[in-house]
Amino acid sequence: MNRKCDKKCLELSFPAVEAEASKGIATLSARLTQNGLPEHKTDDVKIALAEAINNVVEHAYSGIASANVQVNCRLCKERLEIVISDSGAPLPGLRIPDGKPAQLGSSIQNLPEGGFGWFLIHQLTSEIRYERYDGNNHLCLRFDL
């Protein structure tokens, strides 16, 4: 995030509960489009952003009082960087989970109903970075435009 970039910066903070996250994701997606995110990338960004924020709501704040999710976006001509910060539990092992696709199995009844989130994030981003400091998680998603 240290590269010089004088383009659009957007930020939004909202309580880490499902209903607020739903509104926050929709608001950020709309504002990124208004600020010139190319149309061919908007779907990828929307999907990855939603999965990353849902992970914070469902896992980082699981079993503890939830606080806020802070999202900072920096949109340049060639790339979009989104940093999602929270004060919840760290990622297990301080590592970004693998992006293995969920196996579909051999029958309808065995189909997975979850476990797609990190796979989608890996598929749709150019780079994922994770840092933990001062009791906060910072997940940076980079999209090359």
């Binding site: 929709a26 929307k46 999907i47 939603a50 999965e51 997975p112 109903e113 979850g114």
Partner: peptide, 20 residues
């Protein structure tokens, strides 16, 4: 206009609960 993986999972669950 938008679905996430939780929504996808809910549609999968909807198919399962239809039964064979």
């Amino acid at each position: 206009e938008f679905i996430d993986s939780s929504g996808l999972g809910a549609i999968v669950a909807s198919m399962k609960q239809l039964g064979s």
